[in-house]
Amino acid sequence: MLELQALAKRHGEVPVFREVSLRLEAGEFLALVGDSGVGKSTLLHAVAGLEPIDAGRLWLDGEELGGLDEAGWARLRRERLGFVFQAFHVLPQLTVAENVGLPLQLLGQAGDRIRARVAEMLEATGLDGLGGRMPAQLSGGQLQRVAIARALVHRPRLLLADEPTGNLDPGTAARILDLLDAARRREGTAVLLVTHAEAAAARADRVLRLHPDGLRPGRSG
């Protein structure tokens, strides 16, 4: 469903990674681990078209993405990708419910369908009763759950998650991992998860470690 072939990235003249290749099937849960600074978050951003790559090719559902312009990338992210950012990127001027429902609004779905799906996701992430609050009224862990609910609300084909349990207590983290697991089993969503948490990596079908010269089988520890 997702294929990367020999991706390479530099920051200026400094190489970040090269020769990154992988195949991710529909419904597969892959954890990506590695040392700090090796480029795990950069790789997720490259897969989502948020950072350009310097070499290599990538495909989603058999469609090569290298030729997409910015409008094409925006449409792909809106329709087929979910992204959980490490820094949340929750919009401060919108309520929790409005943040979670934003992907559905951008897809032009009807208001009643948006409200029903948002209520479902708020309950699944333990945020029921908080839909009317503003982000400034939430804890870091609650903001993380808003970001996760927003990333899954439109049933994406591919979920890219950057440390999605990093600000959560163990019990809530387990609940979120259950939610990701349910999404990939029920919807066929493929999950590419960047994590330092052994408990999160242990839930994946495969664990790969990112090195400057590519990906190898690995563990979180």
Rank of each mutant, 00 (worst) to 15 (best):
T42N: 07
T42L: 05
L43W: 12
L43F: 12
H45C: 12
H45G: 13
A48W: 10
E51M: 08
A55V: 12
R57V: 10
L58I: 02
E70D: 15
R75A: 15
R75G: 06
R77G: 09
E79H: 13
E79D: 15
F83W: 03
F85G: 08
Q86Y: 09
A87D: 15
V90W: 11
L94A: 11
L94I: 05
V96T: 05
A97Y: 01
A97N: 02
E98Y: 04
N99H: 04
V100F: 02
V100T: 07
G101M: 06
L102K: 01
Q105L: 14
G108P: 04
Q109T: 01
Q109H: 15
A110Q: 14
I114V: 15
R115P: 00
G126Y: 04
G129N: 01
G131M: 01
G132I: 00
A136T: 12
A136G: 14
L138K: 08
S139V: 03
G140T: 00
G140S: 09
Q142W: 10
R145E: 04
A149S: 06
A151F: 09
V153W: 06
H154Q: 13
R155Y: 08
R157W: 13
L158V: 14
L158T: 08
A161C: 08
E163P: 04
P164Q: 11
G166R: 09
P170V: 11
T172H: 10
T172L: 14
